[in-house]
């Protein structure tokens, strides 16, 4: 439908609120961050232009390097461990084993619980004295493996990384819906050719559900880049900054009234996120966005 003159005003009027919010909360903040990242600002007096000082500061800061590394590990685990697990689960459920709908409902369930609540739940699981994990180890006769999971240098980050990996429900549901839209004929033809189900999954299911799989990888990796609540609640970056991530770093800089440094860290985060998106797009395939 072409815009008639009297409708022009309507179209603009209807777009206006969203446009204002989009500019104020998505476009302007990014520009603001870039500008502020070249300044020193405590939030009280006027910002002072300092060139690349903030960037030099964060890239020579071991904690920030550790944070980027942790975020990259996090994103890779999300994209290349969690999503493949979700693909596997979706394929298994696509054959509709007994009770598959119940499995689907239960797998998705952790998704409705907030990140903070889940983190608190897992801090109870990892608790050194009365935690569930140490309790299980004791029952299994593995008491010597008991640990202060979130307090030890060698286990804190793996403990943070591992607990959400098996929550595959969200990605599984997206991929399963895509798999279920693949026509039956392909599988019937493959059956006749004597292709095993594993073979069918590799040659039919995965290629035909590729768009949803790539979309999930993208969402998972972006999620890995912007982690905050879990780390904040479970370790607050400790022990000795071993588990710090970029958002936690920029949050802490902000709490120290180093708005410029915080902005520089945010700009780096946005750049790394963009690189992840573009790399994924140009190597594995196009997602839905």
């Amino acid at each position: 439908m072409n815009v008639k003159r009297d409708e022009k005003i309507g179209v603009i009027l209807f777009l206006l609120p969203v446009l204002i919010l989009f500019i104020a909360f998505f476009v302007y903040p990014v520009i603001y961050l870039v500008i502020m990242s070249f300044n020193k600002w405590s939030g009280f007096d006027a910002p002072v232009f300092t060139g690349l000082t903030n960037y030099i500061k964060i890239f020579t800061d071991k904690v920030f390097i550790r944070s980027i590394t942790n975020n990259i590990i996090w994103a890779l685990v999300a994209g290349f461990v969690q999503v493949p697990l979700a693909v596997l689960t979706a394929i298994l459920l696509s054959y509709k084993p007994r009770g598959w709908k119940i499995f689907r409902t239960v797998y998705f369930f952790p998704q409705v619980i907030s990140g903070v609540a889940l983190a608190t739940l897992w801090s109870a699981v990892y608790n050194a004295q009365y935690g569930m994990l140490n309790g299980i180890l004791r029952i299994l006769g593995l008491g010597h493996l008991e640990k202060n999971w979130l307090g030890s240098l060698d286990t804190a980050f793996p403990a943070l990384l591992i607990y959400w990996v098996f929550y595959v429900g969200y990605f599984m549901v997206i991929i399963l819906a895509d798999i279920q839209s693949i026509p039956e004929d392909y599988y019937e033809a493959a059956d006749i050719d004597g292709a095993s189900r594993i073979r069918q999954s590799i040659s039919i299911t995965v290629p035909l559900a590729k768009t949803s799989i790539v979309t999930c990888m993208l969402l998972a990796m972006i999620n890995g880049m912007r982690q905050f609540e879990q780390v904040y609640m479970l370790t607050n970056g400790g022990p000795s900054n071993r588990t710090s991530v970029m958002v936690l770093y920029l949050y802490k800089e902000m709490q120290n009234y180093a708005y410029g440094t915080s902005s520089a860290a945010a700009v780096v985060l946005i750049c790394v996120g963009t690189i992840v998106i573009l790399t994924l797009r140009n190597t594995i395939g196009r997602p839905n966005y």
Binding site: L33, L218, L250, Y259, A266
Partner: peptide
């Protein structure tokens, strides 16, 4: 796809 958590400084100021 914008990592919203990165926008803490501008949101706070705004």
């Amino acid at each position: 796809l914008v990592p919203l958590n990165a926008l803490m400084v501008p949101y706070f100021v705004l």
